[in-house]
Amino acid sequence: MKLALRHGFVLLMCVFALVPILFVVSAAINPLGTLASTDLVPHGASLGNFADLFSNDRYPFARWFLNSVFIALAASFASLLLSMMAAYAFSRMRFRGRRVGLLALLLIQMFPQFLAIVTIFMIFTRVTELYPAIGFDTVWGLLLLYLGGALGANTWLMKGFLDTVPKELDEAATVDGATHAQIFWRVILPLVTPILAVTGLLAFIGIMSEFIMASVFLRDPESKTLAVGMFGMIAGDQRNANFGMFAAGTLITAIPTVGVFLWLQKFIVSGLTAGAVKG
């Protein structure tokens, strides 16, 4: 009886979790491709929406997809490296200003970068005049901008994890004549893979869905990311007509996330409890 109750509750939650996804799938294979004609249970099945998505002149979906995956992969790799290096210094070395630096990071990470969106917009207006290659409408500029948040977000987490890795390991390496760089690359990095996997996954998911800065930053259709581009796809009076295409795009967007998820899966459960939230 009690077991039945448990199953009932879990099933209810599964329905809650799956209904919107079912709706997306149904919309994506809906031959009519409009919001109004989409039901929870699909009337027919066709891949027309997927075909439209890639053959459409107004919405360069494939380009957006590449932009997003490139930015998300590059930014999460680079930010992992930057914050891992900082965490290594904070955890293993003693230097003047260490305490102050740690406290400053704690303070800074409380301020989400996009709160300064107004001035970031003003700063990059100037940068665009001077260096168009890293200004508005470029993936490189956005990448740099995301790296600005790298140190604040993950350093504490990684330092905490690194503190649990026995110091004797790198001391042994030092005795064997390893330099600090060799210790970092050959000893520390392999040991912290679980936390790297988790923060990497979270950073990847966060950047794939980042909307506010990208929407201010990217206005040229060719340079948009999926979040900005697909938002425009169902903006205004396009909302009803393009819904099938949008749903198809949503399913395709989930592929890289699921891919990264599967790739890093074995580390996830041990690392997740170390904490962070979905963006």
């Binding site: 290096m85 001035t119 700063i123 740099l144 790296l147 600005g148 790298a150 140190l151």
Partner: peptide, 28 residues
């Protein structure tokens, strides 16, 4: 300056794209 070698790359990004905008916000 071994610690600085590890701290500078992240710190430069942090200063340029987070600390500076925040200070600029305050002055604006």
């Amino acid at each position: 300056f071994v610690p600085a070698k590890y701290l500078i790359p992240g710190t430069v990004c942090l200063l340029a794209f987070q600390v500076f905008p925040v200070l600029y916000t305050v002055s604006t």
